[in-house]
Design a protein around this nucleic acid. Structure first.
Lengths: 259, 259
DNA sequence: GGGTAACCTACTGTATACAGTATCGGGCTG
DNA sequence: CAGCCCGATACTGTATACAGTAGGTTACCC
């Protein structure tokens, strides 16, 4: 380790063994500096190392990550499309500053996509598809037992992504991924600031229940289970800390809390 | 129409920044070579100049477009996220080769998003939002009268995008945009190969009807109108020319044609 | 004659270098 | 003392240059 103060050099970041990575490519994916930089920067953002609204200076990052600016710029564009970074032309890039309205947009869309995925994917036609879900759940359980909160969040993310993948619609999965990442960003904003509303074990348990319902294959039951599982109430806690209310987001909050 | 023999140079609108232009550039996003290259390449793909599956060689494009490779590579990444280009690491990029399953994915997701947009956006709360719809419709009508098929397609695209925008959900609109672009790519594949199933005037008329229903504000009526308007039957014509059938797409086709 | 291996070509991936612009601070003027 | 203009600085946007790899072709060996 040479000089890693806040940012981690990406030469050693092959540790991110995600179940998704294996499913995406047939053979060993040749890593490119741009994708590695994107992975590293995404990790920095979601871990809370970089706060929403924080300025992203290219030269600083090239130094931290050990890559030159062209691949880093490519990485930035990738993260822009993931919704984690916004670019102001000629004025630099910042970590996406989430507003109440943003959270409203994310949750609304995410719920609709989840609904569609359940409609298309349940009951599951081949056990092959269930394997990624099961694996993510196993990782999640292990991480919960180990008390690793970051890993729990990451594997819960992978689990939900795998569930959406049951629909067999890559574009749907990709869109959902972007929204789920932005939700993680929202949670990262408030990490530590808010009390843990549930234990890690409880989190794992909740996901295990989802898996069982999915395996049972009753579409409506899955729908209900995911609706109960939904992060609406969860996010409603966070949202008050955010600026940028809008008529839509206000109405949305009222509806959520009316339940 | 065929203004470009091989490709259109984008250097014409290079760097002219008068103080007035500078003041206006705060309102209108200042053009960067990367976005200009993306626009040009997108136009080349959607116009049918480049066919799906066709290899994209960076050096050739830099010559045609008059930009250097770094911004061109950024443009390519943008188009990858729009779904118009796929990149094979170390092996170059190609125009997205659409399969039957791809079309199934696109249409399925697009319909769901349209449904959501109608739910959220109708009835329209402020006339301000209707203006982009009306303007696109005006352009569309003009283009139809002029017999400019490419312009009709482009403005119909803008109209639908403006309708989705009524929901006031930027992420929803952005996702829909990507899908609509890919549908345009699908249509570009078959342009000329298939007979024109409807006149341009008829196309404009269909969209005018949609606008009237939207202005009326009856959500269910809008839903029905858009369902009738849907491109399902339209695309079902195209899909036979494509490879890559999948169980899902086959079932989907059967369902569509059963109507 | 066919198969395999090595070389060659061309393209992608990456780095360094330069130019243009926005922002901030200081000085000048009203 | 306040407001505006001007200059300096730092950062983004872009181009040129180099290195590494994949794929094709040819030659040689079996």
């Amino acid at each position: 380790m040479s000089s890693m103060s806040t940012g981690s050099s990406i030469t050693s970041s092959a540790t991110q063994q995600s179940p998704i990575a294996g499913a995406m490519s047939k053979v060993v994916p040749p890593p490119s500096m741009a994708t590695l930089a994107a992975d590293a920067l995404r990790a920095m953002i979601l871990s809370g190392d970089m706060r929403p609204g924080e300025r992203i200076v290219e030269n600083q990052l090239t130094e931290q990550l050990g890559v030159s600016r062209p691949p880093l710029r490519e990485a930035l564009i990738m993260l822009v499309h993931e919704g984690l970074v916004v670019q102001h032309p000629r004025r630099g890039a910042v970590v996406t500053p989430l507003t109440q309205h943003d959270v409203y947009e994310i949750v609304t869309l995410r719920e609709e996509l989840e609904e569609l995925a359940i409609t298309l994917g349940i009951p599951v036609t081949s056990d092959e598809l269930l394997r990624p879900c099961q694996r993510a759940l196993d990782y999640l359980t292990t991480a919960a037992e180990a008390g690793d909160e970051a890993a729990v969040i990451g594997h819960a993310f992978a689990f939900h992504l795998a569930v959406i993948g049951l629909a067999g619609n890559r574009r749907l999965t990709e869109t959902y991924r972007s929204l789920a990442l932005q939700m993680q960003l929202c949670m990262a904003m408030n990490r530590g600031a808010t009390k843990d509303v549930e234990s890690l074990a409880g989190n794992a348990q909740r996901h295990r229940v989802l898996m069982e319902v999915i395996e049972a294959g009753d579409q409506d039951a899955v729908r209900r289970a995911f609706h109960r599982h939904g992060h609406q109430q969860f996010l409603a806690e966070y949202v008050d800390a955010l600026d940028g209310p809008s008529p839509q987001s206000q109405a949305w909050l009222q509806r959520i809390r009316g339940h």
